[in-house]
Amino acid sequence: MASPSSRYDLTGRTALVTGAGGLLGRQHVAALAEAGARVVVTDVGLAQAETAVASLKQAEPSSDLMALEINVTSLDSVRTAHERLAGRGVTVDILVNNAAIDPKVTSAPGVMHSSRFEAFPVPQWQTEIAVGLTGPMLCAQVFGGEMARRGRGVVLNIASDLGVIAPDQRLYRQPNVSREEEQPVKPVTYSVIKHGLIGLTKYLATYWADHGVRVNAISPGGVFNNQDPAFVERLTRLIPMGRMAEVDEYRAAVQFLCSDASSYMTGQNLVMDGGRSVW
């Protein structure tokens, strides 16, 4: 029987992370590299991927990282990335669907706020759905499909606590805005996309269950990143642990879900939100 620590060992495996240039994307890359994996660091532009690699290499020079451009909304782009990796003899064992657009809530008093559902622009809906939901589907088609043909692999979808609960719009209210239709809100797209991503997780987990491919999701809570103190105070009141997450607190969970430590787990959504969704 393997020791508990060896089950987390990803030596000899290759992971691919989409949207790896972002705040949590870099943490996912670091977690996988720390466990011994070679990591393909991808973003919508090669420059973003290369910048992430350079930053991560500075922190951990021994990391085995490779920058690659992928536009997850384009099947041609995903297929081209797959072909480039195959041409280098690289086979993806772990896919982390992280790419997403997280619309920030800002206030612009005086006009009906475009973040509100009644005024939400259809092109913005389509763009965010394309990145956050269609993108994971396309990447799973190409990279997960290959895993299924080989009979082994792991897909991890990065969801959110807002894929489990609805946004609490009280967090975003501005005291100096008197008209309700001008109050900023968390847009409809993010929560809908993350709920859908958890649904995709369950679908693929059962679809590929007899092909050796495990598919799970993780739903992180908010990460502290020097947000407005008033917002942080309002949010932490909703969290039983009384604080937001530190940026590196999800690393061990990613290692667990992408390794043999979770070998009997598929179709699940691991919620790490400081207890927010319990209240």
Rank of each mutant, 00 (worst) to 15 (best):
R150T: 07
L95E: 07
N176Y: 13
E50N: 11
V29H: 02
G87V: 05
P103S: 01
Q141R: 06
P167I: 12
F224A: 15
A81Y: 15
L85A: 01
S107N: 12
M112L: 14
A130P: 10
R234H: 09
R276H: 08
A245I: 00
K194T: 01
G19D: 06
V41L: 02
A15Y: 07
T11C: 15
S114A: 10
A108H: 15
G199D: 07
K57I: 03
V44E: 10
N269R: 01
T134L: 07
V131D: 01
S277E: 03
I193A: 00
R179T: 06
L270Y: 14
R79M: 13
V232Q: 11
V247D: 02
G25E: 12
F231I: 07
N226G: 13
Q27T: 05
I101P: 12
I158H: 08
D210G: 03
A54I: 11
A148G: 13
G89W: 03
V223N: 06
A15T: 06
C258L: 07
A31N: 02
G196I: 04
A130E: 09
P220E: 06
V53W: 05
M1Q: 12
Q174C: 14
T134D: 05
R79N: 15
L32V: 00
E233G: 08
P4S: 04
V232N: 11
T106C: 05
T201Q: 01
V41C: 06
I198C: 02
A230Q: 13
R149S: 14
R234D: 14
V29T: 00
R234T: 06
N269H: 05
C139R: 03
V247Q: 06
D43Q: 08
